[in-house]
Computed example of a mutant assay.
Amino acid sequence: MANFRRFRPDDLNKLSKCNLDPLTETYELGFYLQYHAKWPSLFQVAEDQHGNIIGYTRVLADVYQFSEHYLPWHAHITAVTVAPEARRLGIGKLLSQQLEAAADANDAWFVDLFVRSTNHKAITFYKSMGYSVFRVRPDPSSEDAFDMRKPTKRDVKREHIRDDGEKYEVDPTECLVSLA
């Protein structure tokens, strides 16, 4: 059984079980604290009965205005991570549903994330939850990334998603990327 709650700064010492996964991007401590300071309600953890962090989700809610590909108000998932021993229990799904509900409550247009094009498990997971590929961020020196999106209630006309996103490549400099 898992307990879901907001991240606290003292949780930083408990994230290692989740961050040991080779597909999880790990950052310096200040990065996590910045998310906590700016979007405390969108940084959630799941802990087991012993108080160990077995999953977390880190989200930013923002409007990007740094390119001609301006994106409207939305929630961007920078991480959904579950410790190996706690996988297949629905924790990742519950964490994702919590942040989608928060995005809806804050009147976001969609929830998005970037995932490595070779991370088939994550792609399958997100597609099962209603996400679709919106565009591809090519990277000749590393791995391509898919920008996956799920519309929120506000996007009634489904203007911020597309069915054939694998066909749309975007210049890598036009994307803020945090790979899942």
Rank of each mutant, 00 (worst) to 15 (best):
A108W: 02
S117I: 06
S141M: 09
P138K: 01
P151T: 08
N106H: 07
G90K: 04
Q34E: 14
T81F: 00
K150L: 12
E143S: 08
I91H: 02
D171I: 01
D171C: 04
K127D: 05
E28D: 15
Q44D: 00
L12V: 09
D21L: 06
E85M: 10
Q44A: 05
Q97T: 02
L71S: 12
Y32D: 01
V63E: 15
M1R: 12
L179V: 10
A86R: 10
V133F: 00
P40Q: 00
F125P: 05
R6T: 13
Q97N: 08
H50I: 01
L42M: 10
D144N: 13
G55K: 05
H50M: 10
T81Q: 11
N13G: 15
S178P: 08
E28A: 15
F146T: 01
R6S: 08
A75K: 03
Q65C: 12
S41P: 01
H160T: 07
A2I: 01
D112C: 12
K17W: 05
A105N: 13
R87W: 12
M1E: 12
K17G: 14
D147G: 04
E25D: 10
S41Y: 05
F43K: 03
D112S: 13
D163N: 12
I91K: 07
L95N: 06
N52F: 02
D155G: 03
A145R: 03
L71H: 06
S142T: 15
V111H: 00
D10A: 08
E85K: 14
A83E: 00
V82Q: 02
D21C: 08
K93Q: 13
H160N: 10
K14A: 07
E28I: 07
I91Q: 03
L71P: 01
G90W: 08
Q97L: 12
L60T: 07
R58F: 02
D48Q: 05
V170P: 03
I53D: 01
G92Q: 02
